[in-house]
Design a protein around this nucleic acid. Structure first.
Length: 557
RNA sequence: GCUCUCGUAGUUCAAUGGAUAGAACAGGACUCUUCUAAGGUCUUGAUGUAGGUUCGAUUCCUACCGAGAGCACCA
């Protein structure tokens, strides 16, 4: 049992002996290391129940807890907090375990045996990979890695809209302009033209509706040709981006598959009253769950987003019998998702219960909101490319062996960190100038710190310095902060919040850099062995932490 | 109009109902004859308004003000 659990149990036992039936104990990492490693506000919370002053209750609890294995001091502070300091030997042993099993460092077994599927990115063929897809991708990849690090068996899924009105618009645009469907840039322009023309009472609107039907039933040879070529070109192009971003999907689902399945599901549940016919469409009345009515099959008989999503839930579970399905989308679909989950709850209650919807905010650039309808947009791809070019200038001055690769790594870090440093769900203001500056709280800052640690280790190895932790040494704040890694990772996984890892890594890197500036590590004395060992575990923490964020950790910068 | 998010330094983000509201950027002052200056040190500066619940509120509740998203055949 780890120290944290021991302390929790001890507090809980003390409260039970005082007569609390089911004590609710919160044991927190202290906000300030001068307060020790863990703190509880139990005495404050229960003071009223016992009609005692909080500090008096705190003293009583401390007395009843007595000695706790692995804890060297228990102090009462402030209004009645009880602070616990962990035995330095335990902290050093913890860090030593990280050095002996580096790949496991920070991991936990809380999800062992669980099957989890994470669906994210979901770009639409025939359209640009826009900046919103960078957000979903960054969050989804990080969440995938967080649950992997907790022992879950993970599958990554990508769900792509290869049918639907956007496709018809692009094909309409291609037919007008005569561009090649194999050229993704031409596809982007064709979509923009189609979207612009697709307005009420225009002849184009009817033509696009007609094309849309033909895409579904594949009745037109010319359209099939444009469709097949465009679809392949888009998907191939997306793969290049996934490689750059460091994502590999296990499953690809397409709306062309989920559509028919979803349609069938909806049609099977009209007679039993789950769905209703209304104005030629088939709808789900969300009002019974305090929501609103949504169309599942339109009056053309075609499945909408909602019906396709129902089909997807079924297909996904057939492919992989998951315990949890995490779906990442932009928060603009939150309301639809609630209706969808309500409908799913009636049809597939067991699947609905296993589904977790994580939504993220919109990514905004200082230039304003981007829309692929206007044609001239900053796409996810162009943003990445700009960053790579900017990073290259600085990379040229670095000691990296492969400047091109470093520039890509730094660019990916700049984007991903910006996305992941804030809580999921809030809008992300992406300031390109700031990201390009590669300074301050940023992905490149973490990479730089990691590269520094690598350089020290390399030098230590070259000069045959023995690396080992002195378990009798006093613990520094840097060592204690490093030892918190596991607690942070576990919470980030439980809350599905990558930003907890991001902010932790910034704090750790700052603590390390500060120490580095005032300490000569390779000082030629026996003390170097211990100091290098600390550098080594900080290095591993940064490496594993960056991995959890989906950010590459180059060894040289 | 209704529903859902969200209002924290000049800006971009933190703070599971707890201790002195933390960082970074921008501004000012320093710091490379020492292991990577993409670094470090010092410094100015914030909880939209009004109530409520609580021993304690940035966090929970109500109202208002402000921003964003959504409100049936697009996703």
């Amino acid at each position: 049992m780890n120290v944290r659990a021991t302390i929790e149990k001890s507090i809980s036992a003390a409260l039970t002996r005082l007569g609390v039936e089911t004590p609710k104990v919160s044991l927190d990492l202290t906000g300030d290391l001068s307060h020790g490693d863990y703190a509880t506000s139990a005495a404050l919370a229960y003071a009223k129940e016992f009609n005692m002053a909080p500090r008096v209750l705190a003293e009583k609890l401390v007395e009843m807890m007595g000695e706790i294995a692995g804890v060297t001091s228990i102090d009462i502070a402030g209004p009645g907090f009880i602070n616990f300091s962990v035995d330095p030997k335990i902290i050093w042993a913890n860090l030593e375990s990280g050095r002996s099993e580096p790949d496991m460092w920070g991991g936990n077994p809380s999800l062992i045996g669980k099957k989890i599927v994470v669906e994210y990115t979901d770009p639409n063929p025939f359209k640009e990979f826009h900046i919103g897809h960078l957000v979903t991708n960054s969050i989804g990849e990080s969440l995938s890695r967080l649950v992997t690090f907790s022992g879950a068996e993970v599958r990554r899924a990508n769900y792509q809209g290869d049918v639907g009105r956007h496709v018809a618009r692009a094909i309409w645009g291609l037919m007008q302009a005569g561009g090649s469907a194999g050229d993704v840039k031409a596809l982007g322009r064709a979509y923009a033209a189609g979207a612009a023309a697709d307005i009420d009472d225009s002849p184009a609107k009817k033509e696009i509706t007609d094309i849309n039907k033909k895409v579904y039933d594949r009745s037109d040879t010319k359209i099939n040709e444009l469709y097949d070529e465009g679809r392949k070109a888009s998907l191939d192009h997306f793969e290049e981006l996934y490689a750059l971003l460091g994502t590999k999907f296990d499953f690809y689902f397409f709306e062309s598959e989920t559509g028919p399945v979803g349609k069938q599901i909806v049609e099977m549940h009209i007679d039993d009253g789950i769905f209703k016919k209304s104005d030629g469409a088939v709808v789900y009345e969300g009002e019974k769950h305090g929501l609103h009515t949504r169309v599942f099959l339109n009056s053309e008989g075609l499945p909408t987003y909602e019906a396709k999503e129902l089909g997807l839930s079924k297909l996904k579970h057939e492919k992989y019998a998951y315990d949890t399905s995490i779906i990442i989308t932009a928060n603009e679909v939150n309301e639809y998702f609630k209706v969808l989950l309500a409908a799913m709850g009636e049809i597939f209650p067991e699947l609905a219960a296993k589904t977790k919807h994580v939504s993220h905010g919109m990514m905004r650039l200082p230039e304003g909101k981007m829309s692929s309808r206007t044609g001239n947009v900053v796409t996810g791809e162009s943003l990445l490319n700009d960053l790579v070019i900017a990073a290259k200038e600085r990379a040229a001055l670095s000691r990296a062996d492969d400047i091109e690769q470093l520039a890509r790594d730094v660019a990916v870090a700049a984007v991903k960190f910006q996305i992941l440093k804030g809580g999921t769900g809030k809008d992300i203001i992406f300031d390109r100038e700031r990201a390009l500056a590669l300074e301050g709280d940023s992905g490149p800052y973490l990479q730089y710190t990691h590269a520094r640690t690598c350089a020290i280790i390399e030098k230590a190895v070259a000069s045959n310095v023995v690396v080992s932790i002195d378990t009798t040494a006093a613990v520094s704040d840097l060592a204690r902060l490093t030892a918190r890694f596991q607690d942070i990772v576990l919470r980030a996984q439980e809350d599905l919040e990558p930003h907890l890892v991001a902010t932790y890594l910034i704090n750790l890197a700052a603590a390390f850099n500060s120490w580095y500036a005032q300490e000569q590590i390779l000082d030629g004395t026996p003390a170097a062995a211990h100091k290098v060992a600390i550098v080594d575990i900080v290095r591993q923490t940064l490496k594993n932490g960056l991995w959890l964020l989906g950010i590459p950790a180059p060894k040289k910068m």
